[in-house]
Amino acid sequence: MLEIKNLNAGIEDKDILKGIDLKVNAGEVHAIMGPNGSGKSTLSSVVAGKEEYEVTGGDILFENESILELDAEERAHKGVFLSFQYPVEIPGVSVTNFIKTAINETRKAKGLEDMPASDMLKMIREKSELLEIDRKFLSRSLNEGFSGGEKKRNEIFQMAMLEPKLAILDETDSGLDIDALRIVSNGVNKLRSKDNAVIVITHYQRLLEYIVPDFVHVLVDGKIVKSGGKELALELEEKGYDWVKAELTA
């Protein structure tokens, strides 16, 4: 589904990603772990198409086609979803209005009519139940005054509504208490299927107890330096990132 080939990217004159190779197939869950500043969030932003980042080499293929030249919204229309580490506030725009706009814009890009209001309502009801979201929450302004847990739950709610093929969860566990973590993870697990893929970006192993990955990659200084199964996450937790770094220089 997603194939990243020797990706080099940076911001202004600073190189951040220095040759990333990654292949994600439908039905798989990949975890990308790494110390602060290793380029985890840059990787997710570059895949999602944030303009500030400049790709200086390599390619990103989504369903066997390069998406490098596509705008962020075009990538979204193809089914790429990013759950933000820090979701932004949009005052005066309700969660419902926002997601309605997102869905209808995506449909429009595919040449479809707006989703009928009754279908939309039904879908909102189903997905909010799935994620244990109080419906009152849906009429509040997007992310305005939301707690950390509410913001992340809202991200996963949008993911559930948009039904992406590839979901990238950027530090979804940061700012969550244990209950919120459980609810968010349950939501993600319920949305997993053989047709979609998930990339979980995290600093800690904790989230991976709930969302169990098929593959774990360690990102250090803009490169994937080690890949393995879910046991790699445990090993990292135990030995710390210095262990990988030491192994590299040895």
Binding site: A48, G49, K50, E51, D71, A72, E73, A76, H77, F81, L82, F84, P87, V88, I90, P91, G92, V93, N97, F98, I99, T101, A102, I103, E105, T106, A109, S141, Q158, L162
Partner: peptide, 20 residues
């Protein structure tokens, strides 16, 4: 960018933010 990522293009995003 947040709106773009959800499939909403920049013009529409501005309209949404301004209307809010």
């Amino acid at each position: 960018f947040y709106c773009n990522q959800r499939g909403i293009d920049t013009e529409k995003a501005i309209a949404l933010i301004v209307n809010g």
